[in-house]
């Protein structure tokens, strides 16, 4: 698992927002923009994957979990 796959949704979304803002500001060189764009798209994919694969996991601290929720 790479570091990028490990980061949480919050961090990923925050990073993504920042990247979009920086890109929209347009103060970077073309090369830097491309790098950022690639990084941003990776984050988008990462978040999308995270949202897709959402199998809900319910756990109980006491182990007491009604069958309809397990």
């Amino acid at each position: 698992m790479t570091k990028e796959e490990k980061i949480g949704l919050e961090e990923a979304m925050d990073d993504l927002e920042e990247i979009v803002e920086v890109l929209e500001e347009g103060k970077m060189t073309l090369e830097e923009s491309l790098d950022l764009y690639e990084k941003g798209m990776k984050l988008v994919k990462l978040c999308q994957a995270r949202l897709q694969s959402a199998e809900k996991r319910i756990e109980s601290l006491t182990g007491e979990l009604p069958p309809d929720l397990g």
């Binding site: 990247i19 979009v20 929209e24 347009g26 970077m28 923009s33 764009y37 798209m41």
Partner: peptide, 15 residues
């Protein structure tokens, strides 16, 4: 998320 993608592409084109 998808709008972030669109925004980035647009920003890239603009740049």
């Amino acid at each position: 998320l998808s709008s972030a993608g669109v925004r980035m592409v647009r920003a890239l084109w603009t740049s």
